[in-house]
Write a protein that binds this DNA or RNA. Structure first.
Lengths: 274, 274
DNA sequence: TATACTGTATCGGCAGGCGATACAAAAGAA
DNA sequence: TTCTTTTGTATCGCCTGCCGATACAGTATA
C-alpha cells in the first residue's frame, strides 16, 4: 500500500484562486505573498524535484517572477536544490513552522499521552487529525510495532465526506453546515464502496451522532477498516478527530466495532473536556 | 522533562537579516516574501497566541505592513485565529508543506522501516535528523512504548557542536569545515558538562571519525545519554544522523555504548549506501 | 548540428506595496 | 464610572521595488 497516496495528498480544499474572475481588488491583499506560497505549493503535485519552469507552470507564474521568488525562498531556506542538484525541493526551514504549529496547538500537546495509551490498549494504528474545512489533516500517527509502512504521515489529509472520522465530525455540526461541507466536497469514489450520495452520507452521520462514533469499511482504501470519533472544544464544536484503523483481513467490521469503540470513546471524552 | 525545550526550539541558525547593514541591494530578492516568512517566524519565540502588534514587534515590521501580511496569510490558511479568538496562531496549511517535504526526501522515506527495526532491537528512543548548517533538525522520532513524553518532536532542532549526532556529522566533514561550523555556533552551556571549547569538541569528533559513531552524556539535558552516527550520501557527504537516546538512570555510558552501538552502526550503514 | 531545456542576469515602466493615519470596540487600570 | 491602552480593521496618496520581457551560457536529448 505504498503508492496509494502519492504523489500528492488525497484531498485538497479548493484553493483561493488569485484574481478569480472580477472579484473586487482587496487592498490588504499582498500579491507577492500569495505567489510565494503558491510557489511552495507547486510541490504538492509532484513526486520528484522540480525545475524552475516546472514550478512556474504549477504556480501559474511566468519564469521571471518564479525565478525571483524561488531565489528569495532559497535564501531563506524554504526551498533548496535537491541532493544531486537536479532540481528544487522544499527546504528544511519548513520544519521550524510545523514545530511552532504543534507547540501552539493545545489539543496536540495534550493528546499525545492519551493516544499512546490508546494504541497500547487496542494495538492498532491510531491517528489524530484536525479539521480544515472539507478535510481532516493528520497531525500525529501512532502505530503498533508490527506495522512498518506509512509511519510518517504528518500532514496527510483525507476528505471529510468519506471517512469515519469525517462523519463523526459532521455529527457534531448543525445539519445545514454538515450538508454544506458534503456539497462543497468534490466527491470521488476512491473504492467501489465509497459513499458519495449526500443522503447516504447523512445517514452515517446520524448514526455517528447517536453512537458518538462511527465505523466504516473501504471508504478510502480497499481492505481498510476505520473507526472515528470527534474531539470537541468546551463549547461542543468539533476541532478534530481520532481514528483507529485496521484491515479487513484481521477483523470483521462488527468485531472491530465492538472491540475498539469503548476504548476510543474513553479517549475522545478525555480529550474533549479540556 | 516537559518544559526544557519550550517555548522555542533549542537552537536556531543565524537568520538572514533583511536589510542588514549596507549590503548591496539584491535585485532578485523579493522583500515581501521575506517579510511574510518573517511574520510566520514570529511564532518561534512564543508559547501562546500573538496579537497583531506582537507579531509586528517580533517580525520587526510596522503594524500596517504586518496587518496586510497577516491578512494575506490568513486568507491562504497559514495563520488563523486561535481557538478562543484571543490571538493568531500558525494555520493548518503548513502541514501540507511538511507533507511535501517528507514525501520528497528520499532519506526519510527509506529510513522509516529501518528506524522502526532499530527501535525494536534496542528498545530506546530513536531519532532521525537532517543537517541545516549549524544544527540538526529532527524529522522523525520513534520511541519505545514505555515513554510517553515528547512523542511529537518533528521540527525540533538541536545544535551540532554539542550533540553526539552533531559530532558524528562533523567527523564526516573536512577538518576546516568542521571547525568553521563550531566557530560560527553560539556555544551555550546547556549543562555543566556541555562542551564549548573548539579543541575539546574536535577531540570527540576525531573519536567519532575513528569509531564511526560517538556517545555523549549530558550535553543538552541533565541525565541524558545519547549515541549518534551520521548518514552519508553516495559521495560520502553527511546528510543527516541517527540518534539513540536514553537516561543515566538506566545505563552507564560505557554499558550503553557497548549495548547499542553495533546495532546503530548496522542501521546507518544500510541508510548510507542508498 | 539543431533543439530544448537548464539556471542566471539585466533593466525600464508603472502597478501595487508601503506606512502614516484614523476609528470603534474591548480590556484593563485608576 | 472614567481614563488609558490595546485590540482589530479600514483608507489613501506617494514612490519604491516588483513585474516580466529579454538575453545568454551551459547541458542534455535527438
Amino acid at each position: 500500500m505504498t503508492g496509494y497516496l502519492s504523489p500528492a495528498m488525497l484531498h485538497r480544499n479548493p484553493e483561493l484562486r488569485e484574481g478569480e474572475g472580477e472579484e473586487a481588488h482587496d487592498p490588504l491583499f499582498v500579491r507577492s505573498v500569495a505567489r510565494a506560497m503558491g510557489v511552495l505549493s507547486a510541490f504538492h503535485t509532484t513526486d520528484r524535484p522540480l525545475s524552475l519552469s516546472e514550478i512556474a507552470r504549477a504556480a501559474e507564474l511566468d519564469r521571471s517572477t518564479t525565478q525571483r521568488i524561488v531565489h528569495t525562498l532559497r535564501k531563506l531556506g524554504y526551498i533548496q536544490r535537491d541532493q544531486y542538484d537536479q532540481g528544487y525541493v522544499p527546504g528544511i526551514r519548513i520544519y521550524d513552522h510545523i514545530f511552532d504549529s504543534m507547540r501552539l496547538n493545545r489539543l496536540i500537546q495534550r493528546a499525545v499521552p492519551y493516544l499512546l495509551d490508546l494504541r497500547s490498549a487496542v494495538n492498532e494504528r491510531v491517528d489524530l487529525s484536525l479539521i480544515d474545512d472539507l478535510r481532516l489533516v493528520y497531525t500525529a500517527r501512532f502505530q503498533p510495532k508490527s506495522e512498518v509502512i506509512h509511519a510518517m504521515m504528518v500532514g496527510l489529509s483525507v476528505p471529510i465526506y468519506c471517512t469515519s472520522a469525517g462523519w463523526a465530525v459532521l455529527a457534531r455540526l448543525p445539519e445545514d453546515r454538515a450538508r454544506d461541507i458534503i456539497r462543497r466536497s468534490e466527491r470521488v469514489s476512491y473504492t467501489p464502496r465509497t459513499l458519495t450520495d449526500e443522503d447516504a452520507i447523512m445517514e452515517r452521520v446520524a448514526q455517528a451522532r447517536e453512537q458518538g462514533y462511527i465505523a466504516a469499511a473501504e471508504q478510502l482504501l480497499p481492505g481498510e477498516l476505520g473507526i472515528g470519533a470527534a474531539v470537541t472544544d468546551s463549547a461542543g464544536h468539533p476541532i478534530g478527530a481520532v481514528t483507529i484503523t485496521s484491515l479487513m483481513s484481521d477483523w470483521t467490521l462488527e468485531e472491530f466495532d465492538h472491540a475498539i469503540s469503548p476504548t476510543l470513546m474513553q479517549t475522545v471524552r478525555a480529550l474533549s473536556t479540556g
